[in-house]
Design a protein around this nucleic acid. Structure first.
Length: 113
DNA sequence: AGTCTGACTGGAG
DNA sequence: TCTCCAGCCAGAC
């Protein structure tokens, strides 16, 4: 009888967790969903991130990519290469819209938080 | 209420 | 490694 939290609260938790991502590391939508107790809500995490630019304080949304290390959300940033620039500024190498050595820079909230 | 869409994911071919 | 597909949750029409 595990009842899940309301969507609004879930979205707030998503933002809170994303702010915990260390500088120079990245994580995935699915990892965030699992860490918040809703393993099947990865699409909902994506929905939340798409509206993240309106949240305050600012959210390091560029540190969230999909399970394959692809910058699937880069279109939501100002310019087409803004997301990649922010990542490379943190020494995260991006090539062809994909994080190089994704496994190495991946941050698993369940393990490291 | 029914249908489509999306910053998703894992498995199959 | 790549493409395709079903399952998934919520919002827009």
């Amino acid at each position: 009888m595990d009842r899940q939290q309301p969507t609004a609260a879930f979205v707030e938790n998503v933002y809170a967790l994303v702010r915990e991502i260390p500088h120079g590391r990245v994580t995935s939508y699915g990892a965030i969903a699992r860490a918040l107790g809703r393993p099947n809500a990865s699409r909902l995490v994506g929905y939340a991130m798409r509206h993240a630019s309106a949240a305050s304080p600012a959210i390091p949304a560029h540190r969230v990519v999909n399970s394959k290390g692809l910058l699937s959300g880069k279109a939501a940033f100002g310019r087409a290469d803004t997301m990649q620039e922010r990542l490379e500024k943190e020494n995260v190498v991006v090539r062809n819209d994909k994080v190089v050595d994704f496994k190495r820079v991946f941050w698993e909230p369940l393990d490291e938080l």
